[in-house]
Amino acid sequence: MRRLQIPELGGAQAAILHRPHVTVVALTRQLEAIGLNVINYWPNLPVAARSNDYLFLDVDTAHDDQFPWPLGEAPIPTIALVGSEAPGRIEWLMNFGADAQILKPVGTGGVYSALLIARATFDARAEMTARIASLRARLGQRQTVVRAVALLAARGKSEDAAYDQLRAMAMAWQISFEDAAERIVANARQQESELG
């Protein structure tokens, strides 16, 4: 079961990207009641807006140029304020990749749960991205591993023994298995070129 980690919200900083409007008033009231500080940006987000803890954005008026980061790469948890449910707006939102959403008009509730969900989703996404990057790197090194094992086996070892030797070298060098393979392949290449 997934357990909710309640983030530290007291004194946290929430940014709202929205033109002056009752929506901003309603959001601000809820955020301040929870204990956050609120800053309002319009019409664009400055680079410094990255230092906020949360960002609320108005999907009805949003466009790519408002954000100082590429679409889909928000550096902080984002919460979409959805008014128009026209497919084009939803498509934009999907590409933006908000972590939670609130339907407009914003009334007297919804912000607290959106903050918790946005934080949890953002953290899970960041962890997933890091894990995928690491898996991808290891996958990319698979060919190198095969070549390193072949090089070691060429000195008269069985493939299994070469594999074990590579593992022992990685441990001795205190680097990953894949990095050890890379080192062996690089060494072999260097020797080859020296022998010319």
Binding site: E8, L9, G10, G11, A33, I34, G35, L36, Y112
Partner: peptide, 10 residues
């Protein structure tokens, strides 16, 4: 003691 409904006041 002031009411702190979201337990964010420390």
């Amino acid at each position: 003691v002031e009411g702190d409904p979201y337990l964010t006041m420390g």
